[in-house]
């Protein structure tokens, strides 16, 4: 059996699979499935899982998997090799990244300034709409990487914060 791991919404999903005659045997969470697969046209498959039909449309893009099944789109990542457990508090990273590609129209964050959770750090405009980038926690502005008028790409770090060392609260 070969094992593949998929990461979806911060969780990892292992699937073990092997070729079995014309079909496959797959194991997910210790449950075994008998599967047959037929490609109808490129990217479109008809699978039978324990005899039940499932229409699948699938596209791969590097490690990204885009799958359409039963009216929904699932987008996840294949994890190759061993990988560290994902930090649940990743979203509280002090490195604030741009959720969008667009133009910086306003910069409120000033290095050294204290900011409260929810306070606007920057405003980015894309497709004629303005998006406010807010501090995810209380802290201090460490670095500001963009100024007004600059173009920013999705995923790029725009501001770095220093988290408040809050000793009065227990660790989340």
């Amino acid at each position: 059996m070969v094992e593949f791991q998929y990461e979806f919404g911060g969780k990892s999903y292992p699937v073990r699979i092997k070729k079995e005659g014309e079909g496959y045997t797959a194991v997910i969470n210790e449950v075994e499935y008998d599967v047959t697969s037929k490609e109808i046209k490129p990217g479109f498959f008809l699978h039978h899982i324990n005899g039940q039909p499932a229409k699948i449309t699938l596209v791969t893009e590097g490690n990204q998997r885009h799958i359409f099944y039963d009216g929904s789109v699932y987008r996840f990542t294949r994890i190759e090799g061993r990988r560290k457990k994902k930090d649940d508090f990743d979203k509280l990273s002090p490195k604030i990244t741009s959720p969008i590609s667009g133009k910086v129209v306003k910069v409120d964050a000033v290095p050294g300034a204290e900011v409260g959770e929810g306070q606007t750090l920057m405003a980015i405009e894309a497709m004629k709409m303005e998006y406010q980038i807010k501090a995810p926690f209380d802290g201090k502005v460490d670095k500001v990487y963009f100024e007004e008028g600059q173009q920013v790409d999705i995923g790029v770090v725009i501001v770095e914060l220093i988290k408040d060392e809050d000793t009065s609260k227990e660790e989340a």
């Binding site: 059996m1 070969v2 094992e3 593949f4 791991q5 998929y6 979806f8 999903y13 292992p14 699937v15 699979i17 092997k18 070729k19 496959y24 797959a26 997910i28 449950v31 499935y33 599967v35 697969s37 498959f45 699978h47 899982i49 499932a54 699948i56 699938l58 791969t60 998997r65 799958i67 099944y69 039963d70 699932y74 996840f76 294949r78 090799g81 061993r82």
Partner: peptide, 25 residues
Amino acid sequence: PPVEVLIAAAIDDLGRTAVATHDGG
């Protein structure tokens, strides 16, 4: 992700894995 989706991804990945070696993760 339903089982159908995970299985679909795995069948596809198996197809593109020339040598099926498992790293024992």
